[in-house]
Simulated assay, not measured.
Amino acid sequence: MPSTIHIEDIHDYFDRFSAFACGQVTSMDGEQQLSLAPQMGEGTITRIPIRQAKQDPGSTAQSG
């Protein structure tokens, strides 16, 4: 049966999908990992943080 996940902001995608998937989310070193619920299948999905300079094309990266 098809389902719909309503996403208003791309930054909400992982959180909304995690709630839909009924899996368990764990965090370590800034990464989040969703372990799928058995009824969804086997496996994990990992969310890694994106550096602000990579996320916002209008910003400038500074090295020092």
Rank of each mutant, 00 (worst) to 15 (best):
M1A: 15
P2F: 08
P2S: 12
S3V: 11
S3N: 10
S3A: 15
T4E: 12
I5D: 06
H6P: 00
E8I: 06
E8A: 14
E8V: 05
D9N: 15
I10E: 14
I10W: 07
H11C: 08
H11F: 08
H11N: 15
F14I: 04
F14G: 00
D15F: 04
D15E: 12
R16T: 05
R16C: 07
R16W: 02
F17W: 10
A19S: 10
F20A: 06
A21Y: 01
A21E: 01
C22L: 14
G23P: 01
G23I: 00
Q24H: 13
Q24L: 13
Q24N: 11
V25M: 02
V25C: 02
T26K: 08
T26W: 03
G30H: 05
G30D: 07
G30T: 08
G30R: 06
Q32Y: 04
Q32K: 14
Q32N: 11
Q33A: 09
Q33I: 12
S35Y: 05
A37C: 13
A37D: 14
A37E: 10
P38N: 06
P38E: 06
Q39S: 14
Q39I: 07
Q39L: 13
G41P: 02
G41V: 07
G41H: 05
E42F: 08
E42M: 08
E42R: 12
G43K: 01
T44I: 11
I45G: 01
I45D: 04
I45M: 09
I45E: 02
R47H: 04
P49S: 04
P49I: 02
I50Q: 06
Q52S: 09
A53H: 02
A53P: 00
P57E: 05
P57S: 02
G58C: 03
A61Y: 06
A61S: 08
Q62S: 07
S63N: 08
S63M: 05
S63Q: 08
G64W: 03
G64S: 07
